[in-house]
């Protein structure tokens, strides 16, 4: 059976990565946006003018709502596989 987002327990935790100082784990190869959502982190950034919460929307590389800093560089979380030791920051794009 597939796991639900926000029910991370059922997924194998093969690698670990860091999000704003928190250590999370995820299966090897899982897209970062999915790994974050599974850890309950749906909110990835704030919108530029209104400061409203935003999260992954299209999961196919189009909407750019999942653009976050991965090892210091802006990347689309839905197109980026999680990797061991990855450092993720949700400091956002102003």
């Amino acid at each position: 059976m597939m796991s639900r987002l926000a029910a991370a327990a059922s997924r194998p935790a093969e690698i670990s990565f860091e999000v704003d100082g928190r250590i999370l784990s995820a299966p090897q190869g899982e897209p970062l946006a999915t790994a974050l959502a599974a850890a309950g982190l749906l909110q990835l950034r704030h919108s530029p003018r209104n400061g409203a919460p935003r999260g992954a929307f299209c999961f196919m590389g189009v909407c750019q709502e999942c653009a976050i800093h991965v090892d210091g560089v802006l990347r689309q979380a839905c197109m980026t596989p999680v990797a061991d030791g990855m450092v993720v920051e949700l400091r956002g794009v102003p």
């Binding site: 530029p48 794009v93 102003p94």
Partner: peptide, 12 residues
Amino acid sequence: INQLSVSERIAP
């Protein structure tokens, strides 16, 4: 024919 490019919004 002048070329320009623009980044997305980033921190200052």
